[in-house]
Amino acid sequence: SQVHIGNTTFTFDNPEKAQKYAEKYAKKKGLTVQKNGDVWTVE
């Protein structure tokens, strides 16, 4: 599972961890999370 934030990609061994990280980061920065398969993009 991966989380894309700008030009940075974070890889997680667990989809739940990836989703939590993406949502927490997005909330903190006032951004949105797009999910595509097991990839979350914060923008």
Rank of each mutant, 00 (worst) to 15 (best):
S1F: 15
S1R: 10
S1K: 09
Q2P: 03
Q2V: 14
Q2E: 11
Q2H: 12
Q2F: 13
Q2K: 14
Q2R: 13
V3C: 04
V3Q: 02
V3K: 03
V3F: 03
H4I: 15
H4S: 09
H4K: 15
H4D: 05
H4E: 04
H4F: 08
I5D: 01
I5M: 03
I5E: 00
I5L: 05
I5W: 04
G6Y: 11
G6M: 08
G6Q: 07
G6N: 09
G6E: 09
G6F: 12
N7I: 06
N7M: 10
N7W: 12
N7A: 08
N7G: 10
T8I: 14
T8V: 13
T8P: 04
T8K: 14
T8Y: 15
T8F: 15
T9R: 11
T9P: 01
T9D: 06
T9M: 13
F10K: 09
F10Q: 07
F10V: 12
F10N: 03
F10M: 12
T11E: 10
T11A: 07
T11Q: 12
T11D: 08
T11K: 09
T11S: 09
T11G: 04
T11C: 15
F12G: 03
F12D: 05
F12Y: 04
F12V: 02
F12P: 02
F12H: 02
D13H: 05
D13G: 06
D13R: 04
D13P: 12
N14T: 15
N14R: 04
N14V: 07
P15N: 08
P15D: 10
P15F: 07
P15Y: 08
P15W: 07
P15K: 05
P15T: 06
P15C: 12
P15E: 11
E16Y: 11
E16P: 00
E16M: 10
E16C: 09
E16V: 11
E16A: 10
E16T: 10
K17C: 15
K17Q: 14
K17S: 14
K17V: 12
K17H: 12
A18F: 02
A18D: 00
A18R: 00
A18N: 02
A18Y: 00
A18S: 00
Q19P: 00
Q19M: 09
Q19C: 10
Q19H: 07
Q19V: 04
Q19Y: 11
Q19A: 10
K20T: 09
K20Q: 13
K20F: 09
K20I: 12
K20P: 00
K20L: 12
Y21R: 00
Y21H: 04
Y21G: 01
Y21W: 14
Y21I: 06
Y21N: 00
Y21Q: 02
Y21F: 15
Y21E: 03
Y21A: 07
A22Y: 04
A22R: 01
A22D: 01
A22V: 09
A22Q: 00
A22K: 01
A22I: 09
E23C: 11
E23S: 04
E23M: 07
E23D: 07
E23P: 00
E23F: 06
E23A: 05
E23R: 04
E23K: 06
K24H: 13
K24V: 10
K24T: 12
K24A: 14
K24G: 11
K24Y: 14
K24N: 14
Y25S: 03
Y25A: 06
Y25I: 13
Y25E: 09
Y25D: 03
Y25T: 04
A26C: 06
A26M: 05
A26T: 03
A26H: 02
A26N: 02
A26F: 04
A26R: 01
A26I: 03
A26K: 02
K27H: 09
K27Y: 07
K27F: 07
K27Q: 10
K27M: 08
K27S: 09
K27L: 08
K28V: 12
K28A: 13
K28L: 13
K28Q: 13
K28S: 13
K28R: 09
K28N: 09
K29R: 13
K29M: 14
K29H: 15
K29F: 15
K29D: 05
K29A: 10
K29Q: 09
G30P: 01
G30R: 04
G30M: 02
G30V: 00
G30D: 03
G30E: 01
G30F: 04
L31V: 07
L31W: 13
L31K: 03
L31H: 06
L31P: 00
L31C: 12
L31I: 07
L31D: 00
L31M: 09
T32Q: 09
T32R: 09
T32Y: 04
T32E: 06
V33F: 05
V33H: 00
V33T: 03
V33P: 04
V33Q: 01
V33D: 01
V33R: 02
V33S: 02
Q34C: 14
Q34S: 13
Q34W: 10
Q34P: 00
K35N: 06
K35R: 14
K35F: 12
K35W: 09
K35Q: 08
N36L: 12
N36R: 11
N36P: 02
N36E: 11
N36I: 15
N36Y: 11
N36V: 14
N36S: 13
G37T: 03
G37S: 01
G37F: 02
G37M: 02
G37W: 02
G37L: 03
G37K: 05
D38S: 09
D38W: 07
V39E: 10
V39K: 07
V39A: 08
V39Q: 08
V39F: 08
V39S: 11
V39W: 06
V39M: 10
W40H: 03
W40L: 06
W40Q: 01
W40D: 00
W40R: 03
W40M: 02
T41V: 14
T41R: 06
T41D: 05
T41P: 00
T41F: 14
V42K: 00
V42H: 00
V42G: 00
V42Y: 02
V42P: 00
V42D: 01
V42R: 00
V42E: 00
E43D: 12
E43P: 05
E43G: 14
E43A: 12
E43V: 14
